Simulated assay, not measured.
Amino acid sequence: MMKIKVNIVTPDGPVSETEADMVIAVTETGELGILPGHIAMVAPLDIGALRLKNGNSTEHVAVNGGFLEVRPDVVTVLAQSAELASHIDLARAELAQRKAEVELQQKKNKVEQQMAELSLRRAINRIKVSGM
């Protein structure tokens, strides 16, 4: 079976360089499945789990926004932040979730509320991905 090269990069540097049979990403318009030979495209990513399928196994990556660039032989994920499921510190993610929940309960302006909501979504995403 053909493979597609997958590069995951953040502002802090490369997170992963691997190959997969299929890549499944959460974009702002829904989930997108990519197989080798896929048409070239760019899509904005949402907060969610990037899944890299290889045979019967699946590797999960917590991605927090960014862009997905697809070419027939390579997928490049340019993410604001990304963590492999095996590298997520669950205790730290749970602490971030509690902190964001407290910030949401406090009366703040609209921008601060939106920032707290994003922090909460990112923390929940990391917790979910760590358990996959």
Rank of each mutant, 00 (worst) to 15 (best):
M1S: 13
V6K: 07
V9H: 07
V9W: 11
P11M: 08
V15T: 07
V15L: 08
S16F: 09
S16T: 06
D21S: 12
I24Q: 07
V26M: 15
T27I: 01
T27N: 03
T29A: 14
A43H: 06
P44N: 10
G48W: 01
G48N: 01
A49C: 14
R51H: 02
K53S: 11
V63L: 03
V63P: 02
G65P: 00
F67V: 08
F67L: 15
P72F: 07
V77K: 08
L78P: 01
L78Y: 10
A82G: 04
A82Q: 07
A85G: 12
H87V: 09
I88S: 10
I88L: 11
D89T: 03
A91P: 03
R92W: 01
E94W: 03
A96T: 06
Q97S: 04
R98P: 00
K99W: 02
A100C: 04
E101R: 12
V102I: 15
E103C: 00
L104I: 04
K107P: 02
K108Q: 11
K110C: 00
K110N: 10
Q113T: 09
Q113Y: 11
Q114W: 12
A116R: 03
A116C: 02
E117M: 14
L120W: 05
R122P: 00
A123S: 04
I124K: 12
I124G: 00
S130C: 02
G131Q: 15
M132W: 07
